[in-house]
């Protein structure tokens, strides 16, 4: 209790600072509608006229929480917020996210579900883009078979020749590790870890804002310590977002 109080007191100057730092803009649109919540379904309960000054407090998805000089607060949609200017007269530039923003991304992350060698799989991945065409990805996969669970850690390069297309194909090449652990009900094999390599191809479909769907096929080769190498295929479909 005491600690949280101290924390609150400690944070107070920061909060005061934040209040002082509010971004103030002047509305240049004929009028701007303030909704009671960050969504088009919430009712409009106030209208700001042209020439009025408002402070922008925060942003959630494409909605901006603003406060008028009289202290009235509400949420304004992006395309109305863009029709305002800063204290030095310049137009307020706010990034509206589109397929174009995807090409300028640095990071992306998402998850997939799919199938691998007859087992259901779950996959979580994150990628860093060096250019619109080339990125590196790290992914963690769990495949849940009837007799064993497999964990895959992969590092791969992803090449996207046409990132400007809404339906954009890509190719991937990489390597990693596979760890197999048999289910408890079967007590015949030990856990084992082997290295893998894979090639794959896929398709990314940009939907809206920071949101896309992507599907992928990969062919894996496992370098086992036994006599022959194993091979298997992986299919997956998922969603992702980027920053």
């Amino acid at each position: 209790m005491l600690r949280s109080l101290l924390l609150l007191v400690g944070l107070l100057p920061l909060w005061v600072l934040a209040v002082e730092d509010d971004l103030r803009v002047q509305i240049t649109a004929p009028y701007v509608e303030m909704h009671t919540g960050p969504g088009s379904g919430y009712p409009i309960d106030y209208v700001v006229e042209r020439g009025e000054w408002v402070s922008i407090l925060k942003r959630r998805t494409d909605w901006f929480k603003v406060r008028t000089r009289k202290g009235k607060q509400g949420w304004v949609f992006l395309d109305q917020m863009q029709q305002s200017r800063l204290s030095d007269g310049t137009v307020l530039h706010i990034e509206s996210l589109s397929a174009q923003s995807f090409q300028e991304r640095d990071w992306e992350m998402g998850f997939h579900g799919g199938e691998m060698d007859g087992a259901a799989l779950l996959n979580l991945y994150a990628g860093y883009a060096f250019s619109p065409n080339l990125s590196a990805e790290l992914s963690l996969t769990q495949a849940l078979g009837n007799f064993s669970s497999e964990y895959l850690l992969d590092l791969n390069l992803l090449s996207e020749p046409f990132p400007e297309w809404r339906f954009s194909p890509f190719f991937t090449l990489g390597g990693g590790m596979i760890h197999t652990s048999p289910n408890a009900t079967l007590v015949q094999t030990e856990d084992r870890t082997d290295s893998t390599a894979h090639v794959g191809l896929g398709l990314r479909v940009y939907l809206t804002r920071r949101f896309y769907v992507r599907g992928e096929f990969r062919h894996y080769t496992v370098f086992t310590s036994r006599n022959e190498n194993e091979e298997f295929n992986q299919w997956k479909l998922g969603i992702g977002t980027f920053f």
Partner: peptide
């Protein structure tokens, strides 16, 4: 010309 760095707190 000083270009103001627009820094809006995003809470997503």
């Amino acid at each position: 010309r000083e270009i103001e760095d627009i820094d809006i707190d995003e809470e997503d």
